[in-house]
């Protein structure tokens, strides 16, 4: 699948889910933010990017090392 196709499918799903959320869902459990339409979508998108960039930054700060960092025979 091309990126265009993937995002096409995702856009349709997203619009559909948000529309259903606004139109149909009456009862929402938990805090007020659960009533904000599309918030979970945003949380998934930004949370994913934050995790990736956070981890990459940690890796660049020195957590990511060569595969031979630890000698194989070191207990």
């Amino acid at each position: 699948m091309t990126t265009r196709q993937v995002f096409g499918v995702m856009t349709v799903c997203t619009v559909g889910l948000i529309a259903i959320e606004i139109a149909i869902v009456q009862e929402v459990h938990g805090g007020w933010w659960h009533r904000v339409a599309g918030l979970d979508l945003l949380a998934g998108f930004t949370g994913c990017l934050a995790l990736i960039w956070g981890a990459k930054a940690l890796g660049r700060l020195g957590l990511q090392r060569s595969e031979h960092e630890y000698p194989e025979t070191e207990p």
């Binding site: 997203t14 259903i20 959320e21 009862e27 979970d40 979508l41 945003l42 998108f45 930004t46 990017l49």
Partner: peptide, 18 residues
């Protein structure tokens, strides 16, 4: 529940897009 299924699907689609 409707809201739970919906919010989970949104979370997964958002993650997939990213």
């Amino acid at each position: 529940t409707f809201d739970h299924v919906l919010s989970t699907l949104q979370l997964l689609i958002g993650t997939g897009a990213a």
